[in-house]
Design a protein around this nucleic acid. Structure first.
Length: 135
DNA sequence: TCCTTGACTCAGA
DNA sequence: CTCTGAGCCAAGG
């Protein structure tokens, strides 16, 4: 079975879920690619462990094409650093204006500024998962 | 269709 | 702390 349409639909839906979650990040908070991906079940139904390996990249891909109004700047890598090389300076500038502190080593303290995530009710009602807490 | 690069993360050295 | 490799997908040339 080789239907190119199917993966496109799955991917499109995956991207939309990512944007939906990112829109929930409040002003003054940040989160990581890995955390966002940990909320979303494996889209194609294959092994969840295998999915863990590349899911954070999917979130990055989703943000690379995110529509207007999505606060993409509030997503950092697992170390609390900026990963977006192309617009890193812009991202930092926006986050500074939002009250985020980069410290002395360009690293945001995720314990202090890290978003706690969506409510349990929201997660359930959107068909997402809470079991995997790789924060 | 092959090759390369990338808004990831983790484990090692 | 920094650097590398491994793991695998997506997008574009």
């Amino acid at each position: 079975m080789n239907n190119p349409e199917l993966p496109l639909i799955i991917k499109d839906r995956y991207y939309q879920i990512v944007w939906k979650i990112v829109r929930l990040i409040p002003l003054g908070k940040v989160t990581t690619y890995g955390y966002i991906s940990s909320l979303i079940p494996c889209p194609n139904g294959s092994d969840q462990e295998e999915y863990k390996i590349y899911r954070a990249r999917w979130v990055g891909n989703a943000l690379s094409v995110c529509p207007q109004g999505v606060p993409w700047q509030r997503v950092l890598n697992s170390q609390g650093k900026i990963s977006y090389r192309q617009s890193g300076e812009q991202q930092k500038r926006i986050l500074l204006s939002e009250g985020i502190d980069f410290g002395i080593h360009e690293r945001v303290d995720l314990k202090k500024f890290g978003w706690e995530g969506p409510s349990h009710e929201w997660i359930i009602s959107n068909g997402l998962i809470t079991t995997d807490n790789s924060h």
